[in-house]
């Protein structure tokens, strides 16, 4: 078990600050997700931890040892690449035991560990195939096998599921999480898919333009987003951010917290999108658009008048100037309080 500590790490390429003063720690045996939009520096952060890129400034510690200046092989980590990086001319078995061969592990032990990993990942029948003869999900498992056979305490993954279909992705998500917990691996997992982050992580680091936007458990990220960006990045459809005529504050309210009915703010229905379990209703409130998730099927004519209300504790306040969360707004403006149900 190894704890990973990243201490004010930056990576600069010319004018690009790919990673900009990032600090966080992943507890031993936990799964930490690096989440964020494309180009925010997730892969770069992961590659810095792996030692595949050198830091411009800052320190990285793994299991208490400062590894900042150590080569990748000396960092006690395994990695699954986004593209899997399987060796195309080697069989599945040879791909998996590649590292053991490099380190001259005995043939008997190699065979035994291969059998164990293959059984764990359901690869027993595929050991003699070449990577090109496997499906995307099977290739992913081989990459995973290559990472776990090393029995390294830390495993890094860069969007390992991005090439898979929804069904398989869902399955692999659970498999990876189960495996990580069973083996007690400290895992850093990169994704830009918020569902993946929410369902797998012990801790989520939300990044934006090379900086950390929020570092919290998934539930906290959802319940108490630190910024407008975090609020809108997590949740589908994203949180409504309404100014409701105020200059200093923004009101955030999740679509699932809005109640359609005959009380509250006046609004007009613009459209309703039926999704099966619920309906997403777009309403115009003043000059702004608010989305409402209504359970079941709700039929509305476009332009129909309705009213929106919400519970007081469902409101998130943000500073209009900085976009940061404001938990100190206790006496909300009268005209807004009026619309809430106590």
């Amino acid at each position: 078990m190894a704890r990973i500590e990243v201490d004010s790490v930056s990576k600069v390429w010319g004018a690009t600050r790919a990673v900009d003063g990032v600090s966080f720690a992943a507890g031993a045996g936990s799964l930490l997700v690096l989440l964020g939009p494309s180009g925010c520096g997730k892969s770069t952060t992961l590659r810095l931890i792996a030692g595949l890129e050198s830091v411009s400034s800052g320190r990285i510690r793994i299991g208490g040892t400062d590894v900042t200046d150590l080569p990748p092989a000396k960092r006690q980590i395994a990695m699954v690449f986004q593209s899997y990086a399987l060796f195309p001319h080697l069989t599945v078995a040879e791909n998996i035991v590649f590292g053991l061969r490099v380190r001259r592990t005995g043939a008997a032990e190699r065979r035994e560990r291969l059998a164990r990993v293959a059984a764990l990942l359901g690869l027993d029948k595929l050991l003699d195939r070449k990577p090109a003869q496997l499906s995307g999900g099977q290739q992913q498992r081989v990459a995973l096998g290559r990472a776990i056979i090393a029995e390294k305490p830390v495993c890094l993954m860069d969007e390992p599921l991005s090439n898979l279909d929804a069904q398989l992705r869902h399955e692999m998500r659970r498999e990876i999480r189960a495996l990580q917990q069973k083996l007690g691996i400290t895992m850093v997992y990169v994704t830009h898919d918020q569902t993946e982050a929410m369902s797998m992580a012990d801790q989520v680091i939300l990044m934006r333009e090379g900086r950390i936007e929020q570092d919290a458990a998934p539930a906290v990220l959802y319940a108490k987003p630190a910024t407008v960006f975090a609020a809108r990045f997590i949740g589908t459809p994203p949180m409504n951010i309404l100014s409701l005529g105020r200059k200093d504050l923004l009101l955030g309210i999740r679509p699932e917290d809005v109640i359609l009915g005959d009380r509250g703010i006046e609004a007009q229905v613009e459209s309703a999108e039926y999704l099966g379990a619920d309906t997403i209703v777009a309403c115009r409130v003043g000059g702004e658009l608010a989305l409402v998730r209504a359970p079941g099927r709700v039929d509305f004519a476009s332009g129909a008048p309705t009213r929106l209300s919400w519970r007081r504790d469902a409101i998130h306040w943000f500073d209009a100037a900085t976009g940061r969360r404001r938990d100190d707004v206790t006496d909300a403006p009268q005209d807004l309080i009026r619309e809430t149900i106590a």
Binding site: A50, L52, P72, A78, A85, F87, F98, G99, V102
Partner: peptide
Amino acid sequence: SPRLAEAAALEGASRWYFFRRI
């Protein structure tokens, strides 16, 4: 792909070993 060299480097393969095997 340069990823192959990186994957091998993570496993501790020397440059000569990587050349010979990959």
